[in-house]
């Protein structure tokens, strides 16, 4: 079995069109006969399924470990508190340690080293994963429970599921597309780390450039191959200036997508612009740009072999 090619769509700034690009890439690969899995790793706002008119299925809970101390078994030795790197166990001499859950990293060290086995795992539900399918594209989605802070745990759970799927599933995906959250934080890093190719999506504004530079810094740190898509490139007529600016900053460009009503319509309808079955204008500006970008991706990732 051949390992699927993993493409990560990211971009630093929010609202640049990461999910729109991810969904359309998925559709274009599928149109060419590839078996595609789209992973939504924007766990605080997972919404890729809306752009595919899909329904969430197979809800599964994601747990986070917190220590719970059994008062009967604890001999108050304090070994757990002494060794807790986050200092998440408050131990006063001759007293039972008190877990301070807000600083607990969930590493389970206390649980493993307690000589009396007095630490139980209190598994807290902090979010969910789902699967779905639409237009012959399979989806894997993570969702963080509102008010919970540990989004990286959900992303990790997604990556574990992905590993299981690519290892054991008979479907044998050819392409996995990872859609990240905005920002250049640990959730995004985890996803980029799993990718063969990284596509940051930006827009021709100062905000777009600033956040793009930040995400490229992260991509370079992780030593990944990337090429940028400039979305809404016809916005306010800055396209040429912006593309030149990126070139002068030695930023690799894959292509640009102009403002296009067809894209907006497809977005609202939940049918990707590049979906074969969609009756869209095949000569539209958005349609043409996506096709050009797709050809360059095929060449870039050696998909043509």
């Amino acid at each position: 079995m051949i390992k699927p090619k993993i493409i990560c769509v990211t971009g630093g700034k929010g609202g640049t069109g990461k999910t729109m690009v991810a969904v359309n890439l998925a559709a274009m690969f599928k149109n060419r006969g590839y078996k595609v899995l789209l992973v939504d790793g924007d766990v605080e706002n997972p919404n890729s399924y809306l752009l595919l008119n899909a329904k969430l299925k197979n809800k599964a809970e994601v747990f986070y470990f917190l220590p719970k101390i059994s008062e009967d078994k604890c001999d108050k030795c304090g070994l757990c508190a002494e060794n807790c790197a986050s200092h998440a166990l408050l131990h006063i001499n001759d007293c039972i340690p008190i877990p301070i859950s807000t600083v607990c990293s969930g590493c389970k060290l206390c649980y493993k080293i307690c000589p009396k086995n007095a630490i139980e795992a209190y598994l807290k539900v902090i979010g969910w994963t789902y699967t779905s399918s639409a237009f012959n594209i399979d989806l894997l989605i993570g969702e963080l429970k509102p008010s919970e802070a540990r989004s990286a745990t959900i992303v990790k759970a997604l990556m574990e599921k992905l590993e299981q799927i690519t290892k054991t599933d008979k479907k044998e995906y050819d392409i996995v597309i990872l859609d990240t959250a905005p920002g250049a934080h640990c959730d995004v890093e985890e996803l980029i780390n799993h990718a063969d190719l990284v596509i940051p999506v930006t827009e021709p504004t100062k905000f777009g450039k600033l956040d793009l530079v930040r995400i490229i810094e992260l991509i370079n740190l992780l030593q990944k191959d990337y090429k940028t898509i400039v979305n809404r490139s016809s916005l306010l007529g800055y396209k040429d200036k912006f593309l030149l600016d990126l070139e002068e900053s030695d930023i690799e460009i894959l292509g640009d997508i102009p403002l296009d009503e067809d894209i907006v319509r497809s977005y609202c309808q939940g049918i990707p612009l590049m979906e074969n079955k969609r009756k869209s204008d095949k000569n539209g500006a958005g349609y043409e740009s996506f096709n050009e970008i797709f050809e360059r991706i095929l060449e870039w990732g050696d998909f043509l072999k």
Partner: peptide, 10 residues
Amino acid sequence: AGGVGIQATQ
């Protein structure tokens, strides 16, 4: 680096 409030309370 971190968790000083907890250690100081200890």
